[in-house]
Design a protein around this nucleic acid. Structure first.
Lengths: 112, 112
DNA sequence: AAATATACCTCGCCTGTCAAGGTATATACA
DNA sequence: TGTATATACCTTGACAGGCGAGGTATATTT
């Protein structure tokens, strides 16, 4: 749970899209799922800011679903454009990981 | 080289400290080394902003060295406090990597 | 003399995160 | 009946780090 704001920054969108790739979902549920799987939780404001941002670029669309238990829910669906973007984001993450690993000397065979 | 601003954010300090752990160095050289090893390059402003920040929290100290070729150089040394912080930062990076991998479904054995 | 490489620095904008505050619905329980 | 709790969504403004744009100064090369 020691992950910081700056560490998560730039990955929020990817995390959300990856979730929606599996199935349509809504804010609260996404956050619950994140917490269950990692112990980490996105801040409300961060999450909803991200939804707006992703809708603006048409990576996701939304619709109101019924809250059969609890309050009303806004469901999100990933678009085709969103799926393409997600693929790209995942590739970028792999690259970024390798670069950062190299720069903080976490990779194998560093000793030159 | 597709690493974005948001991806690098939060790692600049770690990258610099990891470099200084090996040996005293100066801004231009650190950036050269980063470029050689990864193709990526920190922006000047980012680099020097980070130096100020790191000096403020006493993770590094600086002294003027002679530029026997080119202009004068300001060398930086990592402090004991800086080394301890670096250790912590490296640990956090390992954790963050694992969490993000899990959340964007990049880890093994996801299928639940 | 001028161009180029080395080397450092500051200012102000931009963007994503988050603290703090708010609204509304459904369920549990006393 | 009322009130506490969980569910669920939303907005505003502050903050911090990266970076574009601009600047200075020295040494070497042409």
């Amino acid at each position: 749970m020691t992950i910081t704001s700056d560490m998560i920054r730039g990955h929020t969108d990817t995390i959300i899209l990856a979730h929606l790739e599996e199935q349509d979902s809504y804010g609260y549920q996404i956050n619950k799922s994140i917490q269950e799987r990692t112990g980490y939780i996105l801040k409300d404001a961060t999450l909803y800011t991200a939804f707006r941002r992703l809708e603006d670029v048409e990576y996701i669309t939304s619709y109101w679903g019924d809250g059969d238990s609890g309050a009303r829910r806004r469901y999100y669906t990933i678009t085709k454009k969103g799926r393409q973007a997600l693929l790209e984001m995942k590739k970028e993450w792999q690259e970024a990981k390798a670069i950062i690993d190299k720069l903080i000397h976490m990779e194998e065979g560093y000793y030159e």
